[in-house]
C-alpha cells in the first residue's frame, strides 16, 4: 500500500464544485445521484476463450475471459465443479497502476465479484461434474482492467457475468479410465444474473456508479449484488468511512432498482432469458 495515492489527489476546486453540486442533487458530469454512465457490453471478443466480454462504463473499461478446464474437486465438495475468479489492474490501465502481484484492492475486487457469482448460485456447479470425487470442470474467469475511471466493481462484475452467460465449453467423458474431450460444445448451466450496484457516500449524499474523481473524494463505498428475483446475494462496504443505518436500508432498495435496470442491459446483449 502506497502511503499516499497520488492518483487520488483531486483539485480543491473540483472537490468544492462537486460537493456544491451534490447538495443540489447534481454531479460534475451532469448525472443525477442515481444515474449510471452509459454501459456498453460486447461479448465474444476473444475467440480463444470459452466466453468473453468487454464492458465499458463511462471511461472504465475491463475485459473478462472464461476458460473452462478440467480439474480435481475439493475434498469437501466432491460433487461440485470449480469456480475461480481473478482480477488484475494492468499497468497500462492508469498512470498510477504498477506491475506486480495483485494488491489488496485487486484481491478485494476479485473476491467481491466472485462472491456475487458464487452466492447467487448463478452457475449450477453440481452439473459441472465429470466423475464425482475425481474429475470436474473448473471455470476460470480472469479479468483485466484496461482503463480506470471509477466503479471497477460493477464494470468487472458485469464483464464476468456477461462472459459466463455467453460461454460455451467442450464436454469431457471418461473412457476406459482416461479423460476424453468431446467435440460438441455446450453453454454453462446458469440459473440467474447476479447484478452488482456500487454506491459511494460523498458528504451526506449517496450516488451510484462513482467516477475515479468521486471515489477519490468519497467517504465510503458500498456494493450490493442482487439476483434476477431481486434477492440480495452479496455485499461489501469499503473505505474508512461509515454509513448510517438509514443509508444502509435505502441502499438495499437502490441496489434492487438499479440492479434490475442494468440486468436488462445484460439480458439484451447476451440473450439470456432468466
Amino acid at each position: 500500500m502506497a502511503a499516499v495515492k497520488k492518483s487520488l489527489v483531486v483539485e480543491a476546486l473540483r472537490r468544492s464544485q462537486m460537493t456544491e453540486l451534490l447538495a443540489k442533487g447534481k454531479r460534475l458530469d451532469g448525472r443525477g445521484p442515481l444515474d449510471y454512465r452509459p454501459i456498453r457490453i460486447e461479448t465474444g471478443v476473444i475467440s480463444k476463450a470459452s466466453g468473453s466480454a468487454r464492458v465499458i462504463i463511462g471511461n472504465t473499461e475491463v475485459i473478462a475471459g472464461v476458460k473452462v478446464e478440467t480439474g480435481t474437486p475439493f475434498p469437501d465438495t466432491p460433487d461440485q465443479g470449480l469456480l475461480v475468479v481473478n482480477a488484475e489492474v494492468l499497468p497500462l490501465a492508469s498512470p498510477y497502476a504498477e506491475p506486480g502481484p495483485p494488491d489488496e484492492d485487486a484481491i478485494e475486487l476479485a473476491r467481491v465479484v466472485d462472491r456475487g457469482i458464487r452466492e447467487s448460485q448463478m452457475i449450477d456447479v453440481s452439473k459441472l461434474v465429470i466423475k464425482e470425487g475425481e474429475k470436474v470442470y473448473a471455470v476460470f474467469v480472469d479479468v483485466s482492467v484496461l482503463n480506470v475511471d471509477g466503479n471497477l466493481f460493477d464494470t468487472t462484475s458485469y464483464a464476468v457475468v456477461s462472459a459466463l452467460l455467453t460461454a460455451k465449453y467442450k464436454r469431457h467423458e471418461i473412457v476406459d479410465g482416461k479423460l476424453k474431450q468431446l467435440e460438441d460444445t455446450e453453454p454453462l448451466p446458469l440459473k440467474t444474473i447476479p447484478t452488482s450496484v456500487t454506491m459511494a457516500k460523498i458528504g451526506d449524499t449517496v450516488v451510484v456508479d462513482p467516477t475515479d474523481e468521486e471515489e477519490a473524494v468519497m467517504d465510503a463505498r458500498l456494493t450490493i449484488t442482487t439476483d434476477s428475483n431481486g434477492n440480495i446475494c452479496a455485499g461489501q462496504k469499503g473505505n474508512a468511512g461509515t454509513f448510517s443505518f438509514e443509508q444502509m436500508q435505502s441502499a438495499a432498495d437502490i441496489s434492487r432498482m438499479k440492479g434490475e435496470e442494468n440486468r436488462k442491459v445484460i439480458r439484451e446483449v447476451t440473450g439470456f432469458a432468466n
Binding site: R118, E119, S120, L222, N231, A234, Q236, K237
Partner: peptide, 10 residues
C-alpha cells in the same frame, strides 16, 4: 463494516 454473502430477500 458490512459484508454479505448468500441469498436474502429484501
Amino acid at each position: 463494516l458490512f459484508q454479505l454473502d448468500g441469498i436474502l430477500t429484501q
